[in-house]
Simulated scan of single mutants.
Amino acid sequence: MDDLAPDHVRAFIARTRVAEMKSRGWRVLGPGEEGSILMEGPMLASRTEVLDAPIGGVFDDLIARAMERADARDRMDARRAA
């Protein structure tokens, strides 16, 4: 039971959502932290997307914003130099 199955996820689920998660195929493993239960359930259907774009592509968004800020600074520096 202590071995993690690669096709399952363990998470702390709010007590108010336990029934909903059970209906989705999750099972209770034991008590969790404040107001939650430790549960295990099937991996997300879009597992390859999760692996290809960790955290929903947040890193791509952060990099894009950083590049925009850098480009804006370069433009300001070029205007000052002219």
Rank of each mutant, 00 (worst) to 15 (best):
R15S: 06
V28Q: 10
V9T: 05
E40D: 14
D2Q: 08
V18A: 06
R73W: 10
A81H: 12
D7P: 00
R17F: 08
D77E: 12
V28C: 07
P42Q: 03
W26L: 02
I55H: 15
A53H: 13
D61G: 13
R15F: 03
G41P: 01
V18H: 05
P54D: 00
A19I: 05
F12A: 12
R24K: 15
D61V: 14
V58P: 00
A5T: 09
E33D: 10
F12G: 08
A64V: 00
D52A: 15
K22H: 03
R10T: 03
A53F: 14
V18K: 05
R73T: 12
A70R: 14
G35M: 03
P54M: 01
L4H: 09
D61P: 04
L62N: 13
R15Y: 01
R24H: 12
T48D: 15
R75V: 12
R79D: 09
F59Q: 13
D2I: 09
R15D: 09
L51E: 08
V28L: 10
D74Q: 15
L29Q: 02
L4D: 10
G32N: 08
R69C: 13
V18I: 14
G30W: 01
A45C: 06
R27Q: 12
A72D: 12
L51P: 00
M39L: 02
H8Q: 11
S36N: 03
M76A: 11
A53T: 08
A64Y: 00
G57Q: 11
R47S: 12
D77I: 07
V18R: 02
I63H: 11
E68V: 01
A70V: 07
M67H: 10
R79Y: 05
G41N: 02
A45V: 13
W26M: 01
M39H: 02
P54W: 03
E33R: 14
L62V: 14
V58D: 09
A11S: 10
R17D: 11
A5K: 11
A11G: 02
R47N: 08
I63M: 14
K22N: 08
A81C: 08
D2Y: 06
R24Q: 15
G30R: 03
F12T: 04
R80Q: 07
A78P: 02
R80T: 07
E68M: 04
G56F: 14
G30D: 06
E20D: 15
P42R: 04
D61Y: 13
D61H: 11
R79P: 00
R65M: 04
G57D: 12
G35Q: 06
E34G: 09
D7M: 01
A81T: 11
D71R: 05
K22Y: 00
P31V: 03
A53S: 12
R47A: 15
A14Q: 05
E68G: 01
H8Y: 04
T48H: 15
M39N: 01
A64P: 00
E20P: 05
R27N: 09
L62M: 14
I13P: 00
V28S: 08
A82G: 10
G41S: 00
R80S: 06
A81W: 07
A53V: 04
D60H: 15
V58K: 10
S23D: 09
A53D: 09
D71C: 01
R17I: 01
A14H: 05
G57Y: 12
G41L: 01
M1Y: 10
D61N: 12
D74P: 04
A14R: 05
T16C: 07
D77L: 11
A78C: 10
R15K: 15
R24W: 07
D71Y: 01
M39D: 00
M67T: 09
